[in-house]
């Protein structure tokens, strides 16, 4: 059987909220190392990879690997029933048909029990190579969300260009064009707002704003986002889960999107 308790139900709630609009059904693979979910959106344009290591759980027991086929919007509906400071326990029997979800308030005076029906999901799994990227930009996740939203006003494709000086987001559409440049700033008052750029060569790639917009729904998870790019390969937009700022969290939520190419 599988049983795991997360001290903050809100973390799981934010994770599922972040992906439920992009991916409807997904398999959460549970093993002794933790919980993982990999899924593509319905048009197979982007990929979500969620990794929750056992370290981030208060209690984690998994006797045998289990696959939990989950309808994410429905899971999100149940997670919304948790209180802000509740813990959450997930339980599933081997080959069980349901996922039990139990919320407990801090003083354990309120216990809520739910069951979510599991599904058989036929999803293909992809091997994501562990690669170094030409450019890694770390910035405020709220700022990235705002830029993507602002770019969407003007068009559907955004160019992200990066040099040592800064990162430039550009868009053009029927009503005009716009761009926003963020300069590399290591010495700002608020550490969370710093823009740091590690890069080998300047790079500029074009991305569909619709998908970047989906990715930024993960902003409440972490004040910082890491954007990694290399020529002709998918961009990675990554958020730490259950960690602080830039430090490695005990989990991560990464989104992959291929750059647009000229026909």
């Amino acid at each position: 059987m599988f049983e795991a308790t997360l001290q903050k139900a809100s973390t799981l709630k934010k994770v599922i909220e972040a992906i439920k609009d992009l991916v409807t059904d997904g398999n959460i693979e549970v093993s002794e190392t933790g919980m993982n979910l990999q899924a593509m959106d319905s048009s197979h344009v982007s990929l979500v990879s969620l990794v929750l290591h056992t370290d981030m759980f208060e209690h984690f027991r998994c006797d045998r690997n289990v696959t939990l086929g989950i309808n994410l919007p429905n899971f999100a509906k149940i997670l919304k029933c948790s209180g802000n400071d509740d813990s959450v326990t997930l339980k599933a029997q081997d080959d069980g048909e349901n996922l039990a979800i139990v919320f407990e308030s801090e003083g354990q005076e309120r216990v809520s029990e739910f069951e979510l029906k599991l599904m058989d999901i036929d999803a293909e799994s992809l091997g994501i190579p562990d690669q170094d990227y030409n450019t890694n930009v770390k910035m405020s996740s709220a700022e990235f969300q705002r830029i993507v939203r602002d770019m969407t006003v003007l068009g559907d494709t955004c160019s992200i260009g990066c040099t040592k000086e800064g990162v430039k987001f550009s868009v053009s559409g029927d009503l005009g064009q716009g761009n926003i440049t963020l300069r590399q700033t290591n010495s700002v008052d608020k550490e969370e707002e710093a823009v740091t750029i590690e890069m080998d060569e300047p790079v500029e790639l074009n991305f569909a704003l619709r998908y970047l917009g989906f990715f930024t729904k993960a902003s409440p998870l972490c004040p910082r986002v890491t954007i990694s790019m290399s020529p002709d390969v998918p961009i990675v937009v990554a958020y730490n889960v259950g960690g602080e700022k830039d430090t490695e969290g005990a989990g991560s939520l990464s989104f992959y999107l291929a750059p647009k190419i000229d026909e």
């Binding site: 990929l47 992959y256 999107l257 291929a258």
Partner: peptide, 14 residues
Amino acid sequence: QQQQPKISSFFNKK
């Protein structure tokens, strides 16, 4: 005109 490649064309199937 730009084309959107599928993500599956970048990663190998497991």
